[in-house]
Design a protein around this nucleic acid. Structure first.
Lengths: 343, 343
DNA sequence: CTGAAAGCGCTTACAG
DNA sequence: CTGAAAGCGCTTACAG
C-alpha cells in the first residue's frame, strides 16, 4: 500500500540500491539517473520510511531531551521552554527531530533514558540539568552514549563530558558585590534546591563575595526552596520575620522573584526603597514585574542552541575530545535595586 | 555487538519468535517458557530495538506534538509548557513517547508533519492550535491520519475531527457580563491575532455580551495583538489615548495582562480603582501580578491530558467515531476588578 | 556508475 | 504451546 523504494526503482528502471543512493545524494550516481529517479519519486509520491532507515544504518536523526524529574514544577518555569526553543532552532537547522522525556520521578527518567539508548530511539541526549547523585550521566558515560549537559558535571571528571554552562559562581559573586557597592551589608539569599549543582555555585558566589568584603555569612539569611512557586513566598516570610531583616536579596530565579515581590507588596515592604532585589534568568516577563526586576540575563536560548550544536558534533564524531563552553551573562539593571537607606 | 532476540533465543533454547511473544507477553506461551526467556533476557541485558519493532509492525508508540509556527513567541507563553505537561502525563502513563515539531514557519511545520506521517515517525498527532487557513489539518484528514486538535476545527465539518476545547465563546461572554454587572459600560477588548479561531470565539463572546446589554460595540475599543509580549504594551497605549477611555478591559491572555498592568502602572492608572481587568488562562504566575489578576482558569493541563487520551484511543481504534470534548473553565476572582467609579 | 544480495532486528501468519 | 519462514523498507559492502 505504501510507496517504497522498490516501486520507485521499478518505475525508474533501476535497482533499489540506486534509489537509495539517490536519496542519499551519492556522488557516484549520474545526474541523468538521479533526475529519472527523482521524477519517479515525485510521480509516486515517495517518502522514505524512517524506521527502516534507522534499522538499516543505526541512526535516527533524532535527539533526546531530558528534563529534571520535577517536570511538574520545572515546566512552569520559563527556563525550560526557552532552552528548548534554542535546542529546537538548531535541531531544525540540522534536520534533527526531538524526542521528549516524560518521566516524573528520577527512577522513571532513568528508565526512559535507558530505553532511548537501548531502544535506539535517539542518536544523542541533552540533559537539561545537573543534579547531585544523578544516575543518568553515569549510565550514559558507561554506555559511551553521546550526550551534552546543560550545567556542569559534579563528581565526574570534567574531561569526560561535553557541557555548556554559565559561570554561575561568578555571576552570583558579581551580583552580590553590586549590592555591597550600593551599601548593603545585610544581604539575604534565596536559592533553589541544594540537590542541584547550580545552587551550589550560586551559593558559593554569594558567600565568597561577602567574605571578601569581610562580612560574616549568616545562616539565617540563606533560604533554599525547591518548589519555585510557593517557595518564593515561604522564603520571604522566613526572612522578614528575623529581628535583623536583610536590606537586600539575591534571588536565583525570576519566577521565584515574582512570588517574593508579591509577598513584599502585601507585607508593605517597598522595593527598592526598603529592600533591594537582584534576580536571575531574565525570563521574558521579568520586565513586567512591579517594579521591573534587575536580573542577570543568562542567555538561556544560547545555552540550548550551543548544546545542540555540540551534541550533533559529538554524535557525528564520537572520537573527538569533549568540550566545555561557557555562555556569557549580563546584569540587566531595572528598578529593584537602590542604595541602602541610611540609619 | 548488540544483544538481539536471537541471542536470547539461543540462550533460552527457544526460537526467536518465542522470545518475541514473551516480550509481547502473549498468552499462548507457557509460564515456564516465559520465565526461562526472561531469565535469559536478564542475563544478557536484552533490550528491544524500537526501530526494528516499528518497521515490523508499523507502529511507533510515539505521538507527535505540533506547535504553532510562532514557536518563538509561543513557547514564551506558559500555555504551551502547561499543555505539554498534561500531554506528557498521559503519554507516559500509556507508554507513549513524544516527538516535538521544530518548524518556525507554517510551511516548515507542514513539511514536518508530512515527514512525521510519511516517515512513520509517529502514530498520531496533537495539534496545539487552530488557525484559519491552516493546511496541516486538511492534510491529516486527507491521509486519514489519527490526530486530535486542541481548539476547534474551522471551515471543516466538526464530525470529521476529534477535538478538545474550552467554551471560549461562553467564557468571554460571561466575563464581559461580569464586568457589566459591576457597572462598566465602556469595556475594551485586547485579544490575540485574528488568524486564530480562538480569537474569533473570544471576540464573539465579548460582542454578544455587550449587544445583549444594549451597548454598542465600538471598534476603537477592540485591539488585536499577535505578538503577546510587546503587544500588551502597544495595545494599552492605543486604548488609553482615546478621548473616551474604557473603564474595564477583557484581555485574553495572562502574559499579555502582565504587560498591560505594567504599562498602566507607568501611566499612573490604578487597577482596579481606575480600570478593571479580567484575563484568561490562570497561568501559574498570574497570581503574582500586582495586583493579582482576576482571570479565567481554562484548565490547560486537562486540555493536554484529555487530548492525549482521545488521541491514543483513536490510534488504537481508527474506525471509531470522532469525538469532541469541552473542558470546563472557572473565573478566578482576585484583585483586578471593582465596581465602576461614579461620575 | 549501477546491480544483486545480504543484513539490520523485529513480528506474524501458517503449520504442527 | 512452539518453530520455521517470510516480510517490514531500507543501506551497504562487494562485484563488475
Amino acid at each position: 500500500m505504501n510507496v517504497t523504494i522498490k516501486d520507485v526503482a521499478k518505475l525508474a528502471n533501476v535497482a533499489p540500491s540506486t534509489v537509495s543512493r539517490v536519496i542519499a545524494n551519492s556522488s557516484k550516481i549520474s545526474e541523468k539517473t538521479k533526475e529519472r529517479v527523482r521524477a519517479a519519486m515525485q510521480e509516486l509520491g515517495y517518502h522514505p520510511n524512517f524506521n527502516a532507515r534507522s534499522l538499516a544504518n543505526n541512526t535516527t536523526k533524532t535527539l533526546g531531551i531530558v528534563m529534571p524529574n520535577s517536570a511538574k514544577v520545572a515546566f512552569q518555569n520559563p527556563f525550560f521552554p526557552e532552552v528548548i526553543r534554542g535546542i529546537t532552532a538548531k535541531a531544525h537547522q540540522e534536520n534533527y527531530g526531538l524526542y521528549l522525556s516524560t518521566g516524573q520521578t528520577e527512577e522513571e527518567i532513568l528508565d526512559e533514558v535507558m530505553e532511548m539508548v537501548y531502544g535506539h530511539r535517539v542518536d544523542g541526549i541533552i540533559l537539561l540539568y545537573s543534579r547531585i547523585g544523578d544516575k543518568v550521566m553515569p549510565f550514559l558515560l558507561e554506555k559511551e552514549f553521546p550526550f551534552v549537559l546543560i550545567g556542569r558535571p559534579y563528581d565526574i571528571d570534567e574531561s569526560l563530558v561535553t557541557y555548556v554552562n554559565n559561570d554561575n559562581y561568578k555571576a552570583t559573586k558579581t551580583v552580590t558585590e553590586y549590592l555591597l557597592l550600593l551599601g548593603h551589608e545585610k544581604i539575604g539569599f534565596i536559592g533553589g534546591s541544594l540537590d542541584f549543582v547550580l545552587t551550589l555555585d550560586h551559593l558559593q558566589g554569594y558567600k565568597d563575595a561577602l567574605e571578601k568584603a569581610n562580612i560574616t555569612v549568616r545562616d539565617e539569611f540563606i533560604v533554599h526552596q525547591s518548589e519555585v512557586k510557593e517557595g518564593g513566598q515561604d522564603a520571604i516570610i522566613e526572612l522578614m520575620s528575623l529581628n535583623q531583616r536583610p536590606t537586600a536579596l539575591v534571588v536565583t530565579d525570576d519566577i521565584m522573584s515574582f512570588g517574593v515581590l508579591r509577598m513584599l507588596d502585601e507585607m508593605g515592604v517597598k522595593v527598592p526603597e526598603d529592600l533591594s532585589l537582584v534576580s536571575f534568568n531574565n525570563v521574558m516577563i521579568s520586565e513586567f514585574s512591579s517594579p521591573p526586576m534587575t536580573t542577570v540575563d543568562i542567555h538561556i536560548y544560547d545555552l540550548g542552541f550551543r548544546a545542540t550544536e555540540l551534541l550533533i558534533s559529538d554524535v557525528l564524531h564520537p572520537e573527538q575530545a569533549k568540550r566545555k563552553e561557557i555562555i556569557s551573562h549580563k546584569l540587566i539593571k531595572r528598578q529593584t535595586c537602590s542604595k541602602v537607606k541610611k540609619g
